[in-house]
Design a protein around this nucleic acid. Structure first.
Lengths: 333, 333
DNA sequence: CTGAAAGCGCTTACAG
DNA sequence: CTGAAAGCGCTTACAG
């Protein structure tokens, strides 16, 4: 605290002060149980006295464990993942890990750059939500970091995948729409792989069940509240007016409801609306929004559990964890 | 690529392959201009051949520059900062830096732990949005990292602050409300320091201008769409019904509009509503929401510029940058 | 423009 | 339970 003029105190400063070796201080910090109680007490005091803050760059270099995990998501604004990410960050913190946040947009190039950056920092794991190019998959496969894909279940994941079948979700939605007696669905699909899978699942099932013609709009990803104006006004120009709009997100569904009401339509009587994601607004909107719930907290927990055992040296099986989904029927459809 | 059996290639491997010293490879990576063109070419080839990925833990340790900045925000869900953070992350990436994300909730303890974690990683800068306890301020002051507070202008910032006066914003809102002829405002204030400052500014100005009695509700932070139901129903039980609801966020304002319309009130004729933050929904809601715009992109730019010059060794002046705010009158009030 | 070498601050077998 | 020492993979004066 004094004769180290300005520089940060190091492990050696603490050791000197406590009258032990720096190795012992290191052990105390990483695993207090292995040092004698009396020694521990002296070290604790020395840490406080010196104001020691461990240097995790040095620690990570020496142990090749950075205690850092990269989380890669497309956006922060209007993102369906935020609740999941929030849980993840909280759980990781609780486990003594920090997160490196990467925003990929919808570009695989951006994603691959960020994965390189993450590997540069020797992260213990990479959690990714976006599509990957072949080179990146190869990089992920080679890397000692655990590679986690969440919110989807790719064919042959390079690491571990925790998600659900978007195609099945689409099928379920189709069955629901049919069972409620709607005849003219209008699909609003975001321009991304996952949304497209749901759309395909819907169309397959719809046709398999002998549903009639359906209409569609594609919107930029992510689907937002703000897109509703254009989508709705385009929809109004269709020859056959839909009786239900199936949206790619709750925000968009909310927007459609607002537009419909502004146009004097009663929801769901004159126009029904479905969302996706079961965000907080879905249960609170008037009318409440029928949507599909994904257990983001479970995804986060499974992911973190896998990371912890991977860090603990347990060999990670390459596999997929299907957390499923749950259609929640509310007032809007 | 071959005789290093499994381990990551290092600078030495690249150097060997390129027939130069590792120092030269290091120089090439950090400042390509200083090595001869022919050498550079050989190094480039060797990097590709070996699949070299620099180890930033080692690099950071040696240079005491982590090229990492910590961003500390309260929440990810329903956060007014997301747009600002998104710009920041993008700009930092472009500048070759990565971000460590910390979620503080509303706890100063959590904040202080995260700041310690950030210092452990020897981040070049810490961007914080929350309130700090005295000990943390001291920690920040001592640290070589640039300490940035954004979205507010504290009295005596330990580092640099980039934000605006919440009190002045509250005053402006009061003047606007008065100028539009509203007589019975109902304030919905989130339980946080910044929201409270705006509330205080409003009340001061309102009283100074001779406004009459006003009513208030406090809500948990952050103020969300979902809080609107309770707020609205409580409000309806007041003796004196308000003619305008002044909300702490656009989400909440949107929720109030939905509730008001569901109750058969016309907005703004029978009840006006104001938001705060000018989020994407504000301009797209029906009616569009009168709100206060904060130039988040400017905040992000100023912050990143400061970080870059701090990293470049330019001594950072301790000061505040006021980016102001702008009231946007739309349909809802 | 380039190299040899010291040093950044930890961790971790290895011994005792 | 603890210490001495090597090593993690870089950067950067210092020389040339």
């Amino acid at each position: 605290m004094n004769e180290l003029n300005g520089r940060n105190p190091t492990l050696d400063d603490v050791a000197l002060q406590a009258g032990v070796s720096s190795a012992t201080v290191s052990r105390f910090i990483n695993n207090p149980a292995v040092v004698a109680a009396a020694t521990a007490e002296r070290i604790r005091a020395a840490i406080t006295a010196t104001g020691y803050i461990p240097n995790l760059l040095a620690g990570g270099l020496a142990s090749s464990k950075s205690k850092m995990v990269a989380v890669l998501i497309p956006h922060l604004v209007d993102s369906m993942f935020n609740a999941t990410i929030e849980t993840m960050v909280a759980e990781l913190s609780a486990a003594g890990m920090n997160v490196m946040l990467g925003l990929t947009g919808i570009s695989t190039t951006r994603t691959s750059e960020l994965i390189r950056a993450a590997l540069s920092r020797r992260v213990d794991a990479i959690i990714s939500t976006g599509p990957l190019d072949a080179e990146t998959v190869e990089l992920a496969r080679r890397s000692p970091a655990l590679f986690l894909q969440v919110w989807e279940l790719p064919e042959d994941p390079p690491g571990l995948a925790v998600g659900f079948s978007h195609r099945d979700a689409g099928r379920d939605i189709a069955r629901f729409v049919l069972s409620r007696g709607y005849r003219h669905p209008h699909l609003v699909t975001a321009d991304g792989t996952r949304a497209r899978l749901r759309r395909d699942g819907f169309v397959e099932e719809w046709q398999a069940q002998g549903g009639g013609a359906l209409t569609e709009t594609t919107v930029a990803i992510p689907s937002t509240f703000g897109q509703a104006r254009r989508v709705f006004s385009e929809m109004r120009r269709l020859d056959q007016q839909p009786d239900i709009v199936v949206c790619g997100s709750d925000s968009l569904a909310q927007g459609i409801i607002v537009e419909a009401q502004a146009a004097g339509l009663r929801v769901p009587d004159q126009l029904a609306v479905m969302g996706f994601g079961n965000s907080a607004i879905a249960g609170e909107m008037r009318p409440t929004i029928t949507t599909v719930d994904i257990d983001g907290a479970r995804i986060a927990r499974e992911a973190i559990a896998a990371i912890r055992s991977h860090s603990a040296g347990v060999p990670s099986e390459h596999r997929s964890i299907d957390v499923g989904f749950r259609l929640i029927a509310r007032e809007s459809a």
